[in-house]
Amino acid sequence: MTRFLCRVAPMLAVLLLTACSASNMSRLEVADDGEHLQLYSNNSLLASRLSVEEVRRKRVNDLLYMQATLENGWKFELDFQYKIKWFDQQGFELAPQSQPWRQLVMAGRSQANVQAVAPNPSAVRFEIWVRE
């Protein structure tokens, strides 16, 4: 019995620890100011695997419409979330609490286009935020 407890207790402790660990909140920010693409990253694992190949933008009925081509440079599947933040001319974020995190699963070494439409016509700039 003692031997059994000695074996089981450490296993249980490891399981409890893993069950309570926090998720990784790495971020990669892409800001499009219309002139060039800026990449901000906290040098996380996700940011090192993910890159933005191209950003396109156009106005559809006064609303800013964006498309970003993301590339998974890793050889395995990448499962992450992204969010588009929209800003007006003065730098105010538009509808900050209403833009959801969207799920994206990319196969290894693949590209995917993400698209979004600004919440209202005052948007002139956007940022893409990603996290695991």
Partner: peptide, 19 residues
């Protein structure tokens, strides 16, 4: 026996940390 008690105490502390 003391070792077992120490391990069980450790597990109990971890478990209470996740309340």
């Amino acid at each position: 026996m003391r070792v077992v008690m120490a391990i069980m105490l450790g597990v109990a502390l971890l478990a209470s940390g996740c309340a």
